[in-house]
Amino acid sequence: MARLEPYFPKSHGRPRVDDRRVLSGIIFVNRNGLRWRDAPKDYGPHKTLYNRWKRWGAMGVFSRMMEGLATGADRKTVMIDATYLKAHRTASSLAGKKGGLGRLIGRTKGGMNTKLHAVTDANGRPLSFFMTAGQISDYIGAAALLDGLPKTQWLLADRGYDADWFRDALEAKGIKPCIPGRKSRNEPIKYDKRRYRRRNRIEIMFGRLKDWRRVATRYDRCPTAFFAAIALAATVIFWL
């Protein structure tokens, strides 16, 4: 709690309900995929948990927690990848004329889902996230995360990120790409195979995030609330 308190908003007027109890209840609900009304009474009124969750999520408190605690990470090598998160019918229903793009939900062969793009350090601990609809290309996520990449020496990625523009953009930032070439290339791409073996750590990171029920399956229609759940899970699992 001492590490998290600097990221809490300041209370005005009446003293706020116990932060430790409320935050513990929010973590319990998100980890187990419960409805807010089903939260144990030990955590206090479920409306208090939900209101705090919605208010702090909209303010970006949970995202700032993760980014703030991640400042001490070793960033000599970073990795980038993306994964799909299944959208429950309660999140994807009444999507509107645009097919849910405003909610960042898209239709792929696997059904309705959201795609999570992530950048991690060499140990697979998340540094930043970007969320899109499921049918969006990995290149769009890479372009969105490109400007926010930390000063690093190497970037590891699978062959889905093998594009000349991406390699040129990394080299312009002084980053060496460790990305295998696509099989359709006429000339093979040389890369550090020994260093590339560490890339499985970002896959492990996605698997650990999906241990949280409300991350593995998206129940929230609001993309801000769902993104807050991802940031909170990453903070608890990797940075505390």
Rank of each mutant, 00 (worst) to 15 (best):
E5V: 12
E5W: 12
Y7F: 15
G13S: 08
G13P: 03
R14C: 13
P15G: 12
V17I: 13
V17S: 09
D18R: 12
D19M: 13
R20Y: 09
R20M: 10
R21N: 09
S24F: 10
L34T: 06
R35H: 11
D42K: 13
D42M: 13
T48D: 01
W53K: 06
W53Q: 08
K54Y: 11
W56C: 08
G57P: 05
G57W: 06
M59L: 14
R64D: 12
A70L: 07
T71H: 05
A73T: 00
R75N: 00
I80P: 03
L85T: 07
A87V: 04
A91G: 02
S93D: 07
A95L: 11
G96E: 07
K97M: 04
K97R: 11
K98F: 01
G99T: 08
R107D: 02
G110V: 02
G110K: 11
G111F: 05
G111S: 04
A118C: 15
T120C: 09
A122W: 00
G124Q: 06
R125G: 00
F130W: 13
M131A: 03
G134Y: 06
Q135S: 13
G141R: 06
A142D: 10
A143T: 14
L146Q: 14
D147W: 09
P150A: 00
K151N: 01
Q153L: 00
Y161A: 05
F166V: 13
E171V: 15
G174A: 09
I179V: 13
P180C: 08
R182K: 15
S184E: 13
R185V: 04
N186K: 15
N186I: 12
E187T: 15
I189G: 04
R194H: 07
R198W: 03
R198D: 07
R199F: 10
G207M: 10
R208V: 12
L209E: 10
L209V: 11
R213M: 07
R214W: 08
R214G: 05
A216Y: 06
T217D: 01
Y219P: 01
R221A: 03
P223E: 01
P223Y: 03
T224I: 14
T224V: 14
F227W: 13
A229Q: 10
I230G: 10
A231P: 04
A231Y: 14
A234I: 13
V236W: 14
